[in-house]
Design a protein around this nucleic acid. Structure first.
Lengths: 151, 151
DNA sequence: ACTCCTATGTTGTATATACAACATTGTGTG
DNA sequence: CACACAATGTTGTATATACAACATAGGAGT
C-alpha cells in the first residue's frame, strides 16, 4: 500500500516518543499544582525558583538557571515578577556584574502558606502517577541533575 | 533555631516535589528535540500535534486536546501556525460546529524529513535518562492516558 | 417548537519558555 | 597594561501554555 512507509514512521514515533510523553506529564502535573496554588496567586514555576533561592540563597540568577536548566532570559523576567510581589530581594553583588537573589520576608510567608497547598497537589500527583511512576520521575530527574553538573 | 520550621518546609519540598522534577525533565527534553528539529523549522510541540492528526485523523481539535491534555485555546493558535505552513488541512465538518483536521501533503513530507532528526533526539534522550528512566516515563505517561480516558 | 444547557472554537490577557542580539564586566594571556 | 574572550544579565521576538469571557451551534427535555 502507498501509505506504508509513512504509517510505519507515524506508528514508531507515536508509540515511542519520549518528548510527547514528558510534555504530557508536564502539562498535567503543572496544572495540578497551579490549580492548588491559585488561591495564593503564585504559579508552580515561580515557587520552584523561590525554593531554590530559599534553599541555596543568597545565589546568583546564573546559578539558579544552571540548577533548574532554565534560560537566563526566562529567569530574568520571572525574577522581575517575583520582585514586584516582594517575594525576592535582588541586590548588586560587590563584583559589580553578578546579582544576588535572596528570599524576602513576604517570600518566606508565601512558602509557609503554600506548604499545605503544595502537599495537596503532591499527594494528588502521586496518586495520579502511582508509586512506581513517582519513583521513576525522581530517578529520571536525578540522572538529569547529575548530567547537568557534569557539563 | 528561629528558621527551623521554614527550613524543614523548604527541605521537604526541595527533596520531594514532583513538579520541579517533571518541569526540569520537560525543559531538558524539549530542548533536545527542538535543537534536533531546528533545521526543519518545526518545534516538537507542533510535531506532537501533527503526529496525532497523522495517526488518528481526520480528527477534531477538541479530540486532539483531549488526547494530549492541551487547552483548546492553545491548540487553536497552534493549528493556525501549522495551517500557515500548509502542514495541516482544516475543514468545516458537516455538523457545522466541529472542525476537521487532516494531514496535508506538506505535513506528510515534513514527517518524513523529521524522522531521522527525531530518531537522533530520541536516542540522545534515552541516553540522558537511561533505560530505566525512559521506561519510567513510558509507564507514567500510560497511567496518565488511562486516567484521562476515564474522565 | 421552544428553552436551557453543553460542546466547540476564538480572542484577550498573563505567564513561561527559548533564541538572538546586545551592553557590561571580569579574566586571562601576551 | 592592553586586548581578546567569556560570563552575566537585559531586551526584542516568537511560540506554548492556560484562564476568562465570548459567540455559536447541537442536543435534550418539556
Amino acid at each position: 500500500m502507498k501509505n506504508g512507509r509513512l504509517t510505519n514512521t507515524v506508528e514508531t514515533i507515536a508509540s515511542e516518543c519520549l518528548a510527547v510523553r514528558i510534555r504530557l506529564l508536564n502539562r498535567t502535573v503543572t496544572n495540578i499544582f497551579d490549580d492548588a496554588l491559585r488561591p495564593l496567586g503564585v504559579k508552580v514555576s515561580q515557587l520552584n525558583v523561590l525554593m531554590v533561592v530559599a534553599k541555596l540563597g543568597p545565589i546568583t540568577p546564573g546559578d539558579v538557571c544552571r540548577k533548574l536548566n532554565i534560560e537566563k532570559s526566562t529567569l530574568s523576567r520571572n525574577v522581575d515578577r517575583m520582585r514586584t510581589h516582594n517575594w525576592l530581594k535582588v541586590s548588586e553583588g560587590d563584583s559589580g556584574r553578578k546579582q544576588i537573589l535572596e528570599l524576602a520576608p513576604a517570600g518566606r510567608r508565601l512558602i509557609e502558606k503554600a506548604f499545605p497547598l503544595w502537599t495537596k497537589a503532591q499527594t494528588e500527583t502521586e496518586s495520579l502517577l502511582g508509586q512506581q511512576g513517582a519513583k521513576s520521575i525522581h530517578r529520571a530527574a536525578n540522572t538529569v541533575w547529575a548530567q547537568l553538573g557534569r557539563e
